[in-house]
Design a protein around this nucleic acid. Structure first.
Lengths: 359, 359
DNA sequence: TTGTATGCGTTATCAC
DNA sequence: GTGATAACGCATACAA
C-alpha cells in the first residue's frame, strides 16, 4: 500500500486537502467557494465550516487548473516595446487602470526594444491563452514582419502609440500631423520667424507626419524654412539617446549657423538635449531662444524651466486601447478592418517658450 | 452519433488536433515537440512531419495544461509598488534582464501605490503558482501588515529598494546612511558651510538613515546645522508630488531665511523642485547655490544643469534581487533569516554643484 | 519506435 | 443539499 502524506510540506493546498480536512466532498467545496448557482441550496453551516477550513489552511485556487477547465484565461496580454520609456509607461498605467475594473488581468511583458524579445514574449502570451492583446509601441523598432505575425492570430489586438504602415491592425495614436502644425503655430504666434528644427528619424512614419504638419503651417503663413536649420535625428534603440543627439546637433548648428530664435524638437528628450547645448553657449531659455518639445512625458513638467510641448493624451490612448479590446471581447463582433484612431494633440505652454527677443 | 467538428473556429490548436491531422498519437507528438529524452528514438521523418503539421496549424502549447501537469509554473512574481516611478522601473528592468537568461518568466504586477491593489495582485500571483517573489518598493506606502502576510507564504521572497522595520524578509537596498554622509561631504568639500536640507517623510526609515549619515559627517567636521534650514517632506503617494513640495518648501525658506549656499534634497525629484524655486528667485545653479539630489533617476542626467546626486545602484539591486531568489530556488536551502544587503551609494558629480561663491 | 492509460486541480453535469 | 464522475490539454510511465 502506497503511503501518502496528509499534506506534503511544500505543495499548495488543493480542494482535495480541504475535502479531507472538512469531511465534505470536493464538488461541494468548489460550489461553495465559487458561490456557484447551486450554492444557494447549501446549508449555511456547511458554508461557514468550509470557508473556515479554507482560510485555516490558506487555500488559494490553482489558476492554471481553473483556466484549463473553464477554457478561459481571463487574461489580456500587454506587450510593451520599452518599459523604461516614460511614454510607454504612462500608456501602460492607463491600460492597467482600465483593466483593473474588469475581470481581466493584464499580463505585462517588456520587449526591451529587442525584436527577439518581442517575438519570444508574444509567443509566451499566446501560450498563456491571452484573450486579447495590446501592443504598446513608441517610435522605435517595430519591424513590419512582427505585425504580419500578429495579424494571423485570431485574438483581438490593438496597437497603441504609433502607427505601422500597411497594417490592418486597429491602432490608436495621436494626430502627429496636427501636432507638428500646433507646435510651429505656437512659435510663430510668439513672433518667431527664425526657427530651427530637429526632425525625427526618417525611417519613422511619425517623423514625416509631424513634418507634414509643420510644412502645412509654414505654407499657410508663407514662412520660409532654412535648410541649414533643419537637423535630423538618426534611428536609435535607446529612448534617452536622443538627448545626446539633440545636444550635439544643436551645438553644431550654433557653431555653423547661429541666429535662430526658436527650436522645435522631435520630442521632449531631444528638446532637453538642445536646451543643454544652448545653455552651454550661454543662451538663456526662453529669453534668448524658445524651445518646444513633443509628447509631454513627466520630464517635461519637472525640467527647469518647464518645457513647453505638444501633449499626447497618453491616459486616453491607454484607456481607449483597453476598451477597444474589451469591446471586441464582449460583443464578439469581428469588424477586422478598423480605422486607425487619431487623437487630438494639445499644446502645453510652460516656460521654455516666450515672445521673440527684440534685436 | 454526436457530430464533432474537425477543428472549431476559434479554439486553440491542441495536441489532439495535431494527432488527428498527422496520424500520429498525442504522446509521440508531445515527445517530439518537447524534444524529450525518448525523442532520440523517433524516426527523423516522423519528427519532420510532426513539426510541419504543428507549424501549419499554428500550434502553441497550452501553458496552463503544461504547468498543471508538470506541477511547475516556471514563473516568478514581480510585484512593483509603482511602475511610473523611474526608480522602480530601473530596478524592474534589471530584474527582467537577469531573468530573461533563465527558464523563469517574470509576472509583472503594478500595485500603483495602492494597498488594496498590492494585496489583490499578491493573491493573483499566488494563485498563478509563482515559484518565487520579488517585491520592488520605493519609499512610499508599504504598511507592515502586508509584509506579515508575505512571510507566511513559503515561497522564496526578496524585497528590493527599501527596508521594512521588524521584518525578517531578506531585502536589498542602498546604504542610505552612507549616502547621506557622501552628500554632505561633497558639499562641504566644495566649501559650503551654509547648507539647507529637505528631509524625507519621517514615517520613512530611509529618511532617518540618510539623516543619520548627514549628522555623522557634520559631527566629524564640527559643522553646525541651522534648524531654520531644515525642511521636511510630508508623506505622499505620488512620486512626483515631491517636486511641488520641494519647490514650495524652498520658496518659503528663501523668503524667511535666505543665505544658504547649498541645498541637500531627499531625492532627485525634490531637488528639481528646489531648483525651480531657486531659479524663480533668480538664483543661478550652481554659481549662486549648489543643489544635490539622491537616487540618480534618469531625470537627473537630463535636467539642465545636470543634477549632482547620490546614486543608488539600481541595476545591481535588481540583479542581486533576482539572483537571490534564483539561488534559493535551485539550492532549496531555506536560510530564512538572511541579512539585509546594503549596497554602497556613489556620488555622481554633474553641474548642479560647484565651489561656494565668494561673498 | 510508437501507442495507451493515467493524473495534475478544477468545474460542470448529473445522480442520489 | 450533497457527492460521484467526467473532461479540460498535456506529459509520462509503461505496454506493445
Amino acid at each position: 500500500m502506497k503511503k501518502r502524506p496528509e499534506r506534503s510540506a511544500s505543495a499548495r493546498v488543493t480542494l482535495a486537502d480541504l475535502a479531507r480536512e472538512s469531511g465534505f466532498s470536493v464538488s461541494t467545496i468548489s460550489i461553495v467557494l465559487n458561490e456557484a448557482p447551486l450554492s444557494q441550496f447549501i446549508a449555511a453551516g456547511t458554508k461557514a465550516r468550509i470557508h473556515a477550513v479554507a482560510k485555516r489552511l490558506g487555500y488559494h485556487p490553482n489558476a492554471y487548473a481553473r483556466s484549463l477547465r473553464k477554457r478561459r484565461s481571463h487574461t489580456i496580454g500587454v506587450l510593451v516595446i520599452d518599459l523604461s520609456d516614460p511614454f510607454c509607461t504612462l500608456i501602460l498605467k492607463s491600460i492597467e487602470k482600465t483593466l483593473s475594473d474588469t475581470e481581466f488581468l493584464p499580463l505585462i511583458m517588456d520587449a526591451a526594444n529587442q525584436h527577439k524579445q518581442f517575438k519570444r514574449y508574444l509567443n509566451i502570451l499566446l501560450e498563456h491563452g491571452v484573450e486579447g492583446l495590446i501592443v504598446v509601441a513608441n517610435w522605435l523598432l517595430m519591424d513590419t514582419s512582427l505585425l504580419a505575425d500578429l495579424e494571423q492570430y485570431k485574438i483581438p489586438t490593438t496597437l497603441v502609440g504609433t502607427e505601422i504602415q500597411d497594417s490592418t491592425l486597429p491602432s490608436i495614436l495621436v494626430d502627429n500631423e496636427q501636432g507638428g502644425y500646433l507646435a510651429l503655430q505656437h512659435l510663430y504666434s510668439l513672433g518667431h520667424r527664425a526657427v530651427a528644427f530637429i526632425r525625427g528619424p526618417h525611417q519613422l512614419i511619425d517623423s514625416s507626419r509631424r513634418w507634414q504638419g509643420i510644412l502645412r503651417f509654414a505654407a499657410e503663413v508663407d514662412l520660409q524654412l532654412r535648410d541649414q536649420w533643419i537637423m535630423q535625428l538618426s534611428k536609435s534603440s535607446d529612448p534617452n539617446a536622443s538627448f545626446e543627439e539633440g545636444r550635439i546637433l544643436t551645438q553644431e548648428a550654433l557653431q555653423k549657423q547661429p541666429g535662430f530664435s526658436a527650436l522645435l524638437a522631435f520630442d521632449d528628450v531631444t528638446a532637453l538635449g538642445a536646451i543643454r547645448a544652448l545653455q552651454q553657449h550661454n543662451i538663456r531659455i526662453p529669453q534668448d531662444c524658445s524651445v518646444i518639445g513633443f509628447d509631454d512625458v513627466p520630464y517635461a513638467a519637472l525640467s527647469n524651466p518647464g518645457l513647453t510641448t505638444i501633449r499626447q493624451p497618453m491616459e486616453e490612448m491607454g484607456r481607449l486601447a483597453a476598451n477597444r479590446v474589451l469591446e471586441r471581447l464582449s460583443s464578439s463582433k469581428n469588424d477586422l478592418a478598423e480605422q486607425a484612431l487619431l487623437l487630438p494633440p494639445e499644446l502645453v505652454s510652460r516656460k521654455s517658450t516666450a515672445v521673440v527677443p527684440l534685436r
